[in-house]
C-alpha cells in the first residue's frame, strides 16, 4: 500500500508521524524553554506538511497558509513566549507533569482510541492522506491532555496552541484546508490569544505570586 504511493505522499505520512512525536515530546518535556522549542518544531512540521499537501492537490492558496503557519507558529509565537519567559525569569524552571510516565501511557492509549474512533470517518474520505485524521485527532487530544496534566500556565498555553495545530492539521490533511477566510480568522484568534496570554501571565503572577494555576483556587471565596 505505502509502496505504491508517490514519494511526497509518503513524506506527508512521515511528517504526520513526526508531528505526533512532537506532541509526545511536549507531554514528556519539562523544561520551559524546551517546550517552546518543540512547539516551534511542531509548527514547522505542520507548515511543511501543508506545503506538501498544496503541491499534491494543486491548491495554491494552501501555500499561503503554509507561509502563515511558519511565520506565526514556528517563529512569532515561540519568539513571543520565549521573550515572556525570559522576562518572567522562569526560563530555567521545570514545569513538568507529576507522573510523566503515566501521562505518556495515557497518551499512547489516547492515540489508539483516536484510531478506533477515526476508522469509520476514514472510510468516507477518498483522500490518500485520510489516515492522518486519526493522527491529527490524537494531536488535539494530546494537547488537551497537556492542558490537564500541567499546572503551570506557560505549559498550558503551549498545550492549547498545540491543540490548535492538531485542528489545523486535520483540516489540511482531510479536506485540503479550510476556506481562506476561516483560516485567517483562526490564525488571528491564535495571535490574539498569544498576546492576551502574555498580558495575563503578568497579571496572575502579580495577583497570586506564582504561575501555578492550581494556586488560582485561592481566589475562590469558599472556605476551605
Amino acid at each position: 500500500m505505502l509502496e505504491q504511493l508517490p514519494l511526497y505522499q509518503q513524506a506527508i505520512l512521515t511528517l504526520a508521524a513526526m508531528v505526533l512525536f512532537t506532541s509526545f515530546a511536549l507531554l514528556a518535556q519539562s523544561r520551559v524553554v524546551s517546550i517552546i522549542h518543540i512547539f516551534a518544531w511542531q509548527g514547522l512540521l505542520v507548515a511543511v506538511t501543508t506545503a506538501l499537501v498544496a503541491y499534491d492537490s494543486g491548491k495554491h492558496d494552501l501555500y499561503l497558509s503554509a507561509i502563515m503557519t511558519i511565520a506565526l507558529k514556528a517563529l512569532f509565537i515561540p519568539w513571543l513566549l520565549h521573550r515572556l519567559v525570559k522576562r518572567l525569569g522562569i526560563d530555567r524552571e521545570e514545569h513538568g507533569a507529576e507522573h510523566p510516565a503515566t501521562v505518556l501511557m495515557i497518551g499512547a492509549g489516547l492515540v489508539i482510541f483516536c484510531y478506533y474512533v477515526a476508522q469509520p470517518i476514514e472510510q468516507l474520505s477518498a483522500s490518500v492522506t485520510r489516515n492522518t485524521i486519526a493522527i491529527s485527532m490524537a494531536v488535539v487530544l494530546l494537547g488537551m491532555l497537556m492542558l490537564v496534566s500541567r499546572s503551570k500556565a506557560v505549559a498550558q498555553v503551549v498545550g492549547f496552541m498545540s491543540l490548535e495545530n492538531g485542528l489545523f492539521f486535520a483540516a489540511v490533511a482531510a479536506t485540503h484546508g479550510m476556506p481562506m477566510a476561516v483560516e485567517l480568522g483562526v490564525a488571528f484568534d491564535v495571535l490574539v490569544a498569544a498576546v492576551i496570554f502574555g498580558v495575563f501571565f503578568f497579571h496572575i503572577r502579580d495577583s497570586i505570586e506564582s504561575l501555578d494555576v492550581d494556586q488560582l483556587n485561592r481566589l475562590s471565596e469558599q472556605d476551605e
Partner: peptide, 24 residues
Amino acid sequence: PAFLVLALTLALIGLLSHIILEVG
C-alpha cells in the same frame, strides 16, 4: 530511565504509525 522512556516512546510511535498510517 528518561532516556529509555524516550526510546520506548519512539518505538511506540513507530508501531502506531505503522498501524495507523501505513496499513490504515
